[in-house]
Design a binder for these strands. Structure first.
Length: 288
DNA sequence: TTGTGTTTTATTGCCTCC
DNA sequence: GGAGGCAATAAAACACAA
C-alpha cells in the first residue's frame, strides 16, 4: 500500500528525494506536490519548532536523526521500510489549538502550519480531516446522550402522571361510592316520607319536591363527573394512539383498555382493571 | 513476550463546488 | 476539470492484560 503520498519528511520522504534526484520523481506527482525539493529544504522551519518539541523519541523527525548521526542514520533509513510517524505532543498541541480556533483549513493557514511544525501541508490537511471526523463522532455521542436524557425525563414525567391519574381516579370512585350511599339513604327516607305525608300540607309537599330536585341535581353532578373523567381519559388515549410508532400489538392493547374504559363500572374492586400501557407497551417512542 | 483491542495516520474513491 | 471535503478503510503505533 505504498502510495505516492508517503513522500514526507521522513524515511519515505527521503527516499522520494533520492528518487527525484534519479529523475524518477515525476512519476509520483500528487495533488499536494509533496516531496518536492522545496518541501525538503523547508526543513529549516523544523528548527524553530524543535524548541518546543519535547524530544519524543518515537516521534522525532527524520531531520533530527540525520543531524545526530548522519552516516549511520542515513544508512539505516535507506534500508528501513516506510513507516508511519506519530506527531509529537507539541505538534499535536499546536494543531489542537489551531483546530479550536477554526476547524476548517484555508490553503494559507495550511502552509503556515506546515512550515511552523515542519510537516508537509498534506499532513496538516489529513490531520484536520481526521480531527473533524473525530469531532463529528463526539458531537454525535453528545447529541445521543442529550436525547437519551430527554427521553428518560419524559418517561419519568409520564409515569408520574399515570400515578397521579390513578390517585385521582381512586378519589373519584371513593366519592362516588359515598354519594351513592347517601343518595340511597335519602331515597329511602323520601319514600317513607311520601307515605306519611300523603295527606300533608302543601308546605311539606314543597319540601319534598325540593329534596327530589336536590337528589336529581346530585345525579346530574355525578354523571357530569363521570363524563369529565371519560373525556380526559379518551383525550389521553387518543393522543397515545396518535403515536405513529406504535406497533399493531400495542394498538390492540390500547384498544382493549379503551373497551374497559367505555364500560367503566366505577367501582373500587375493578380499579386495577384500568390497565394503562406499561413501560414496555405503550411508551415505546424509542427503545434504547 | 505476545495476543488483542484502540488510536492515529494515511489512502482511496466518490461527491460537490467553483 | 481541479481542489477540497467526507466516509470507509488500511495499516502502523500504541496500550494493556495474561
Amino acid at each position: 500500500m505504498a502510495g505516492p503520498e508517503l513522500f514526507y519528511g521522513d524515511a519515505a520522504g527521503f527516499n522520494g528525494i533520492l528518487l527525484q534526484n534519479q529523475g524518477l520523481m515525476s512519476s509520483f506527482a500528487t495533488k499536494e506536490a509533496v516531496g518536492s525539493p522545496a518541501s525538503f529544504l523547508a526543513s529549516g522551519s523544523m528548527v524553530s519548532f524543535r524548541g518546543v518539541n519535547g524530544g519524543n523519541k518515537s516521534a522525532r523527525s527524520f531531520f533530527q536523526s540525520v543531524e545526530e548521526n548522519e552516516t549511520d542514520e542515513l544508512e539505516e533509513y535507506l534500508h528501513q521500510p516506510e513507516q508511519k510517524r506519530r506527531l509529537t505532543a507539541d505538534q499535536l498541541q499546536f494543531l489542537e489549538k489551531s483546530f479550536e480556533v477554526e476547524n476548517k483549513l484555508e490553503p494559507e493557514r495550511k502552509d503556515q502550519l506546515a512550515k511552523e511544525l515542519g510537516l508537509q501541508p498534506r499532513q496538516i490537511a489529513i490531520w484536520f480531516q481526521n480531527r473533524r471526523a473525530r469531532w463529528r463522532t463526539k458531537q454525535l455521542e453528545n447529541d445521543y446522550e442529550a436525547l437519551r436524557n430527554k427521553y428518560d425525563n419524559l418517561k419519568a414525567d409520564y409515569i408520574n402522571l399515570l400515578k397521579e391519574k390513578d390517585d385521582l381516579r381512586a378519589q373519584v370512585i371513593q366519592f362516588t361510592d359515598k354519594l351513592l350511599l347517601k343518595e340511597k339513604e335519602k331515597g329511602e327516607l323520601a319514600t317513607s316520607d311520601i307515605k306519611e305525608l300523603s295527606d300533608a300540607s302543601p308546605k311539606e309537599n314543597m319540601i319534598d319536591q325540593k329534596v327530589s330536585a336536590i337528589t336529581l341535581k346530585q345525579h346530574e353532578d355525578l354523571n357530569s363527573v363521570k363524563s369529565d373523567a371519560f373525556d380526559s381519559e379518551s383525550l389521553v388515549q387518543s393522543s397515545i394512539l396518535d403515536q405513529s410508532d406504535l406497533s399493531q400489538d400495542e394498538e390492540e392493547n390500547l384498544s382493549k383498555n379503551l373497551v374497559v374504559h367505555d364500560h367503566y363500572p366505577m367501582t373500587s374492586s375493578n380499579l386495577s382493571c384500568f390497565g394503562y400501557p406499561g413501560e414496555d407497551q405503550g411508551f415505546g417512542f424509542w427503545s434504547f
